[in-house]
Amino acid sequence: MSAKNYWLAFGIGVSAGAAVALLYAPQSGARTRKKLRESAEEAGDYLQDAGDYLKTQAERLTDEAQDAITRAQKQAVHMVDKAGGRASDLADSVSGAVNSAVKSAKSLV
């Protein structure tokens, strides 16, 4: 099929399709445009609601994450303080043992 025949057949097909669509359209063009406009508005409202919901969820998750970070920081400080106290106690014990050993060694000499 030549290019000229192809485009001629294509044009006839498009015209026939448009004619059939107009003949069997369930409603007028004005009514169809109105429905399309309403559908677009509903889609816009839905997207707005979805955006608001996502924003609310993001804020909630941000708050929860901040609370978790704060709790972790407090727990870390507590653990460091506790470890520092135990290290200090251990150092005192070692120091006492060393002093005791030194006294014992002096008494032997």
Rank of each mutant, 00 (worst) to 15 (best):
V80L: 02
Q27D: 05
G44R: 06
A83H: 01
A43C: 09
Q27V: 09
Q73C: 01
T32W: 12
R37F: 10
A58R: 11
Y6K: 07
A9I: 15
E59I: 14
A76P: 00
A16Q: 13
S107T: 03
Y6C: 08
A30C: 07
A97K: 10
L36T: 06
K82H: 02
T62D: 10
S95K: 09
A58K: 13
A18Q: 11
E42K: 13
K34I: 14
A87V: 15
G44K: 12
L23W: 09
D45P: 10
D67A: 05
I69S: 00
A30N: 03
L54E: 11
A76D: 03
V102E: 04
F10N: 04
M1G: 10
M1L: 09
H78T: 03
A43I: 14
G44Q: 13
G51K: 08
S2V: 07
R60I: 14
G84T: 15
K55H: 14
R86H: 02
K55T: 15
K103E: 07
R71S: 09
K34S: 12
S93W: 15
G13Q: 06
Y53H: 12
A3M: 14
T56S: 13
V94F: 11
E41K: 09
N99S: 05
D89N: 02
K35T: 14
A50Y: 08
V80H: 03
G17A: 01
D45N: 12
Y6Q: 01
A40T: 11
T32F: 15
A58G: 04
M79D: 12
Q66C: 10
L54D: 09
G29T: 07
I12F: 14
E64Q: 02
G85P: 13
D67G: 07
D81C: 00
A101N: 02
I69G: 09
L22I: 11
A40Y: 03
T70A: 10
Y24G: 05
T32V: 05
Q66H: 10
Y46K: 13
S28N: 07
S93C: 10
A76H: 00
K34M: 08
M79E: 12
N5R: 00
L90A: 11
V77N: 02
G13M: 13
R33G: 09
A58F: 13
R60K: 06
Y24E: 00
L36Y: 11
K35C: 09
A16E: 14
K35L: 15
V80F: 04
G51S: 11
L47D: 01
L108A: 00
A68C: 04
A3P: 09
S39Y: 15
D67I: 10
V109P: 05
N5L: 11
Q75H: 12
E42C: 12
V109W: 08
Q48G: 10
K55Y: 13
A105W: 05
Y46G: 11
N99I: 10
Q75N: 01
A87F: 05
N99G: 00
K34F: 12
R33W: 06
A25D: 04
A105K: 06
Q57F: 15
V98D: 01
S28Q: 00
H78R: 02
S28M: 01
A21L: 02
L8G: 06
V77W: 00
G84W: 13
K35G: 03
E64D: 04
L23Y: 08
Q75G: 07
K34Y: 02
A18R: 04
D67Q: 12
S2K: 06
P26M: 05
G13C: 12
G17D: 06
